[in-house]
Computed example of a mutant assay.
Amino acid sequence: MLYTIPDYYHEFTCVAGKCEDTCCAGWQIVADEASLEKYKNETGTFAERLKESVNWEEGTFKQDKDRRCAFLNQSNLCDMYTALGEESLCRTCKLYPRHIEEFEDVREVTLSVSCPEVARILMNKKEPVHFLTYETDEEEDYEDFDPFLYSKLLDARDVMIDILQDREKKLNLRAVLILAIARDLQECIDEEDIFSMDDVFDYYQAEEGVREVKNALAEVDYYTYSRKMFQNQYQMEHLRADWESYLQKAEKLLYGNANEKIDRKRYVELQQEFHAWMAKEMPEYEIQYEQLLVYFISTYFCGAVYDGEAFAKAQMAVVSTLLIHELLMAQWMKQEKVLDINDVIDTVYRYSRELEHSDSNLNLIQELLQESNE
């Protein structure tokens, strides 16, 4: 088995009760069968607490009215861990914030930016991310796996990451280049013409392809597109009680609600002012967005080997980074046009939790993006 990890993987250490948030609230924690069996057989003083705190029918940990795990105490520490030790934790709790994508003979392990500490590491990282590999003797069989498509998706992802990390190009050009590649790759997948994928890579790495994308950028209506993508978030499952009101306040600050002509002009002016402020006061912001784009592409793009939806996965990476940008601009406006690195970290991990802690949200955003392409 080949394992892949990002180069900052070993920088992570859980800060436990010192964390500004908790990973044990806001989402349903599902326990694996082996852990559930162990909990059923517990006979010590913690046995009654286990019996009362597990939803045995669903195989999940119960939550209180604030959606906090039944084992999470007021110091944001786990009572099960304290009583029974680390080995008592279910697979979900042991792994988080590690996220695993599995392919034939390959496991890709990333760190989820839904964890504030991971977001802090990645948003402070200045160098381009690299990926490390190591091998083990494990073997597993995968049915209905297309190794040739997977190989081409790997090639595509390498090309996309190379483009995203080319800091000689403007960030919006890099983002739209990977969208153009994914769009054309999707046509190859739909037409079962996998052999033409190499031509797509070559075209968008050459001057002609870059020029085409630059011309397309000039036609983008950022106000309409950003607002439409922003409003998609209301269709998603909201994991935190305050998320919808947070979105509503941000939407009003960004896009207004009175007169489209006036609101559009105001948005363009605000966007220009925000970009100028960021370039002066937080010049590393394009690096932070680059790291996010690489994170989403590296984590999800090759999953297209299972559903064939390469374009939607590339779109999710770009749209997620765009939405984080929009939320940051709203925060900047709310705070009288000031931001700092903690605002960036907070926005990144909060957005990620709403998206990545819900399979239904991950599926929905892909469906919405597919519909927007029709």
Score class of each variant (00 low, 15 high):
M1K: 07
D7R: 01
T13Q: 12
C19I: 06
C19L: 04
G26K: 07
E33S: 09
A34W: 08
E42G: 03
G44E: 07
F46L: 05
S53R: 03
T60V: 14
C78M: 01
E87A: 11
L95I: 04
H99P: 00
D105A: 13
T110H: 14
L111K: 03
V113E: 04
V118S: 06
I121N: 03
H130N: 15
F131I: 04
F131T: 05
L149P: 05
M160N: 02
L164F: 02
V176G: 00
A180M: 09
E187D: 07
D190Q: 12
S196M: 14
S196V: 10
A206G: 14
E219F: 09
Y223P: 10
Y223Q: 09
Y225V: 15
M229E: 13
F230I: 01
A250H: 03
K252E: 15
L254I: 03
N259P: 04
E260G: 00
R264D: 05
R264I: 01
R266W: 02
L270S: 13
E273D: 15
E284G: 09
E286Y: 10
A304E: 07
A304P: 05
G308D: 05
A310W: 04
A317R: 04
M329A: 08
A330G: 11
L339Y: 09
I341Q: 14
T347P: 03
V348T: 06
S360A: 13
Q366T: 11
S372P: 08
E374C: 12
